[in-house]
């Protein structure tokens, strides 16, 4: 059974509130959703909360006879994405304290706190760049680069043709380059960060 057929079957059973099917759905999609949320939130607790809220909204949608019609995975990613977007809107930009930097450095056994700061700031900047994309572009980037889907799978997940997926991917990469000022080498980002932080 293909992935799409499996999703259709699970969705059909889930509409009848088959607990077994719902449990299978949770086991099948919650790890990927957690990784997706962690990448964008950089917080395991918030990511877990995001996953819980995503599946709760999915249940309410089934109860009101709405919810996904065909692509269950795309639906769950979209719900999680909306939750993360709302979270970013509601909270202030994350700030990095020195204690946190030291803890992270100790956890990662990194002797250089500067590298910890640089790495954390770089991750935040990339997250911010990804969050600045449109929902479709973000989903294409996340599903293709982080979930390892092919263009066909992404197209099926977001219910768009393959050509549209390629176009979305190209526009997303261009937007990321424009936001991140990507130079010919990735060290440019670090150099830029060093200049911004005054540690050069």
């Amino acid at each position: 059974m293909s992935d799409q057929a499996l999703q259709q079957t699970l969705l059909q059973r889930a509409r009848e509130f088959d607990l077994q099917a719902l449990a299978e759905i949770y086991d099948l999609f919650s790890p990927a959703l957690y990784r997706y949320a962690v990448r964008l939130l950089n917080d395991p607790d918030l990511a877990e909360e995001c996953v819980t809220e995503t599946f709760s909204r999915f249940l309410r949608a089934l109860k009101s006879n709405s919810g996904p019609r065909r692509h269950l995975r795309a639906y769950l990613y979209r719900v999680a994405h909306n939750w993360i977007t709302d979270h970013y809107r509601a909270t202030q930009p994350a700030s990095v304290s020195l204690e946190e930097i030291e803890d992270v450095a100790l956890d990662h056994h990194d002797p250089s706190p500067l590298q910890v700061v640089i790495g954390k700031l770089a991750s935040e900047r990339i997250r911010a760049a990804i969050m600045s994309l449109t929902p479709d572009q973000r989903q294409v980037i996340v599903l293709k680069y982080y979930e390892g889907m092919t263009n066909d799978e992404v197209a099926a997940a977001i219910d768009k043709p393959v050509g549209a997926v390629k176009a979305l991917q190209q526009r997303a990469l261009a937007a990321l380059r424009r936001v991140l000022h990507v130079q010919s080498d990735p060290a440019g980002v670090l150099d830029e960060l060093r200049v911004e932080t005054g540690s050069a």
Binding site: L176, R177, Q183, P186
Partner: peptide, 18 residues
């Protein structure tokens, strides 16, 4: 640039275990 962008995106690939 494409390669460096991929490297940048890869920096988010590894996530802490759930």
């Amino acid at each position: 640039t494409e390669q460096s962008l991929g490297e940048l995106l890869d920096s988010l690939y590894h996530t802490p275990p759930r």
